[in-house]
Every structure is written in C-alpha cells, then in structure tokens.
Design a protein around this nucleic acid. Structure first.
Lengths: 121, 121
DNA sequence: CGCACTCTCAACCAGATGGTTGACAAGATG
DNA sequence: CATCTTGTCAACCATCTGGTTGAGAGTGCG
C-alpha cells in the first residue's frame, strides 16, 4: 500500500465496490448493514472495504449505540484532483512548447544550425 | 486489479514510483534506460511499472531501433478527474440540501410533523 | 434477565503485486 | 564478424489484497 496518503487514496478508489460505496455515501450517511445489503459479499468483506476507505481518510465511522453510521469526507478527494490537474496541465504546456519548437523548426528548415538537442534531460 | 479500466487507472497511480514516472514524462518522452537511472531498483522493475501504466492506457511505448521511447498519454487522466469531480459535486449538493433541511427544521422547530425520514435509502 | 441485532476480530486462503536474478533477442558500432 | 547496448522474458519469492467462515463483544429491548 506504500504508506503515503496519496497512494492510499488512489488505491482506495482502485476498486469498483469501494467506488460504489463512495457513490452511495454521497447520498448520505449509512450503516454497515444498509450498505452491505447492496453487494453480493459478506458483511465482513464490506467492512474491510470501509476500513480501506477509512485509512485513506475518505470515510469516518460514527458511534450511535450499536450502529455505526458511515460518513463520507468528500474533501479528501481534493488532493487527487489537484495531482491530476497539475500533471494534466503540465503535459498540455509541454505539448504547446513542442508545437512552438516544431513551428520554429519549420521556419528554420534549411538552417539546422541551432537545432541540436531540444531538451535531453 | 479488477479488470475495468477506471480501476486499472486508479491502481496505476497508487504507487509513488509510477506517479513519479508520470511526472517525469510530462517533461517529454524518455527511454527505459533514462527513466530507470532515477530509481533505486532494477531496470526490469521499472519496466514492470511501465507495463502497469501501459495497461492503464497512461503510457505508450514506441519503437526506434533498439530504443523504445515512452510517451505519456495525458488524456487518459481525464476519466479520473471526471469521476472525482462528479462525486465531489454530488457530495457538495447533498451538503447544501442538508443545510436546507436544517434550515427548515430550525424554522419548524415546534412542528416535527412532516419531518419523518428525509431519505432513508 | 435473556435474546436478538449490529458490528468487529481472527484465522485462513487464492491470487495479484512489486521486487529480485539470470538468460537472451535485436540493433548499433567498432 | 565481434561485441556492447537496450530492452524483454521467465522463474522465483515475500508480502498485500479481497474474499471466506466462525466466534464474540456491546447495545437495545421484550
């Protein structure tokens, strides 16, 4: 699981059941029993999935008598969005720079003088 | 790995080395050898990581003689962003609706008549 | 109290993951 | 041709994952 928070959060969402749990929880808190009813697996298995989401910080479990309402911490999705947007944007910029380089090369066509290596490392 | 594409993509990013590879590749294509130099692990291990990214569609490997430039397919990050944004937004709306309900309850205070169950399943 | 209900804990299992080493295929280069 | 470089393939291994079953802890309630 790689111990770091970002990894744990990505890993938590790398499972259809867990994504479905998150989807379900955007509609409101629910108890383990309510959640488990929707899946073709044991209650304990669903509980384990919730534990994974909990360790990723995506979910918290309350305490109300013997029932434990599960609550979604939607904010915890933000670091993922941020990471994705950051590198998405970076890649786009790189793309635009590449276009610029290609434009220059096209203009210089006959003068491969300053062309050399572009970027290397 | 759960076989579906979204799961594979989330799983691919649930590892610091792989995220670093993606970060590195936003700066431009690179060969396996160039990439592997940065990590304290065997070249084969890095190749395996690239295979994971490739199966998630995040990366493609070209063919230039014996060298195989690795290229980032940044578009493939979009489905993740979409998923995250969708549920983020949904959770926010739910929150706003909750605020509305609370406001109504506060106004009705003495009349718990129509309150009942709010949403249940 | 006694019982039912909700949930957790522990042991176990099959299969995936993340790494290793060693062998080798295919191009580039002297 | 001989050899170096780049990368892949295969076997192996330890650990993690996602599920199971069985037992039990803690609360609510007739």
């Amino acid at each position: 699981m790689s111990t770091d928070q970002l990894s744990r959060t990505f890993a938590a969402l790398a499972d259809p059941t867990r994504r479905d749990l998150v989807a379900r929880l955007t509609l409101g808190d629910a108890t383990l029993g309510e959640l488990a009813g929707s899946y073709d697996m044991s209650l304990q298995a669903v509980s384990k999935h919730l534990t994974v989401l909990e360790r990723a910080g995506l979910v918290t479990r309350g305490q109300a008598g013997t029932r434990r309402p599960v609550h979604l911490e939607a904010d915890r999705l933000d670091p993922l969005t941020d990471w994705l947007e950051h590198y998405r944007r970076q890649a786009e910029q790189r793309y635009q720079r590449l276009d610029a380089v290609l434009a220059v090369l096209a203009a210089d066509e006959a003068y491969p003088d300053t062309a050399g290596k572009e970027e290397e490392r």
